[in-house]
């Protein structure tokens, strides 16, 4: 089946089995390897992407569902100023160890700050609870989010 959708700002059309996972299509047909597979069951968030601005786990999304929708992956986000702030803040806070979970976290943090520029501790925990990290113990990721909220203040409110 041919599916048209917007991917990282560009209109694309691709032929794939409609039942295949969005995750596989992004990785295999578009080479977007920033979208990671950690569990394939919707639990770890390593495969997180934005679907019409909402965080989804691409391992759970049947490819047919993206017809006419907009998908943004870490590769698309990378070009934005918002991304730069999040990335710098995570790096400064020491939130990146192995980094396998990081692209997924960045997606969730971006969505969080876009909706809630000044999140409280509890809201941060809630918003990124769909992302698992086994290396950091999370404290430094929370610190990173707070730093990003502060540094990008104007940007998030825009």
């Amino acid at each position: 089946m041919k599916v048209r959708f917007k991917l990282n700002g560009e209109e694309v059309e691709v032929e794939a089995n409609p039942a295949s996972r969005l995750l596989d299509v992004l990785r295999e047909k578009f080479g977007l390897i920033g979208v990671k597979e950690g569990c394939g069951e919707g639990e770890c968030g390593a495969c997180a992407v934005l679907l019409d601005g909402r965080v989804v786990h691409s391992c759970l999304v049947p490819f047919a569902n993206v017809m006419g929708k907009e998908i943004i992956t870490i590769e698309g986000l990378r070009k934005t100023e918002e991304y730069r702030i999040i990335e710098e803040s995570l790096l400064d806070a020491g939130s990146v160890q192995c980094g396998f979970c990081t692209p997924g976290f960045v997606i969730s943090i971006y969505a969080l700050l876009k909706n809630n520029p000044n999140p409280e501790d509890k809201e941060i925990r809630e918003a990124i609870s769909g992302n698992l990290c086994r290396c950091t113990g999370y404290q430094m990721i929370i610190d990173g989010v707070k730093l990003a909220a502060k540094r990008g203040e104007k940007l998030w409110k825009a």
Partner: peptide, 9 residues
């Protein structure tokens, strides 16, 4: 290596 890891590259 943190930068390249964060960008997913």
């Amino acid at each position: 290596d943190a930068l390249a890891l964060a960008t997913g590259e």
